[in-house]
Amino acid sequence: MTDDADDRSHAFSEGQGVDEDYEEFTLDPTDLGVDPDQVDPVDSRVLTDVLDKHNVSAEQVDVPELIDVGLSYMEINRFEEATAAFERAARFADEDSIEAQEAWVNKGVAHGQLEEFDQAIGAYEEALRIDEDSEHAATAETNLAYALWEFGRTEEALEHAERAVEIDPRFPQAWYNRGFFLSERGLTEDALNAFDNAIRLGMRNAEILEEKARALEELGREEEAQEAIEQAEEIRAEAEEELTEEF
């Protein structure tokens, strides 16, 4: 599933992120009226001081750059600061624009990382209110499905997982979530098909192979289940070896 902070990373939109030679977030002093050299890059007051205290107008704010600031906070696990950045990006973006939608989707991701699923749900719903068929809609639906599941609204979760697949049938994370929800409801054959679709579309990690193994076991296909488990173990072993080599 998409929003698990431990093993299953949550999909969010691509941004500049943090370069290897990162020193501070890129807040252009000409546009935002602040010298980034004088600001602690992980100080949560930065955005408030820049955008609220100095009352910057929407015309002076580079919304994509502000979204990148939020993504940079995500990269260093400063999720509370990220939610603030994304909310401000949404507020400063043109009303109901694709940029506003992207900001709301990412805000939902940040809340999900904080396990604030009620707020994540609200952010995803706002994103989908803007556009139910845009380039960000499948991600919003997929992540909304997970947040609803975590919030105990399981029936709605499957509905949104299905909707994500309808919007973008080539989105592997959507198929994975759909498979998980179907499996939880005992629809094992359909779940297995969903997992296979996700794998065919490039999602090949230990978690999905373990879910597939469980589905195969439920269907009595023990040899195939064991094969999937062995593949999952190989992937985990390779990941551990790579981590060891880094140190």
Rank of each mutant, 00 (worst) to 15 (best):
S72E: 09
D35Y: 07
V63M: 01
R170D: 15
T26K: 12
D37F: 09
A110D: 00
E166S: 12
D37W: 09
T2N: 09
D196G: 04
A127D: 13
A110Q: 00
R91T: 15
Q101T: 07
D190H: 02
F79E: 13
R236F: 00
Q226M: 07
R221Q: 12
D3W: 08
Q119W: 11
A11Y: 07
I229L: 09
A138Y: 04
D68M: 05
E217V: 14
S134E: 13
G70T: 02
E156I: 00
E155P: 02
K53Q: 09
I98N: 07
I76Y: 14
E211H: 08
Y124V: 05
S57P: 11
E245F: 06
L216C: 05
V69W: 11
E99L: 12
E211F: 04
N77V: 13
E65H: 05
V63Q: 01
A164S: 11
E81S: 12
D49F: 10
H136W: 06
Q119N: 13
T2R: 05
F92H: 12
D131M: 06
A82T: 06
N143C: 11
A93P: 03
D37I: 00
E80P: 06
Q60N: 10
A85H: 08
Q113H: 12
G15V: 08
E245N: 13
A174R: 03
D7P: 00
R91V: 15
F195M: 03
V34G: 01
F171Y: 15
I208P: 01
E210N: 13
D133Q: 12
D7C: 00
D168V: 12
H111T: 08
A194L: 02
V109Q: 09
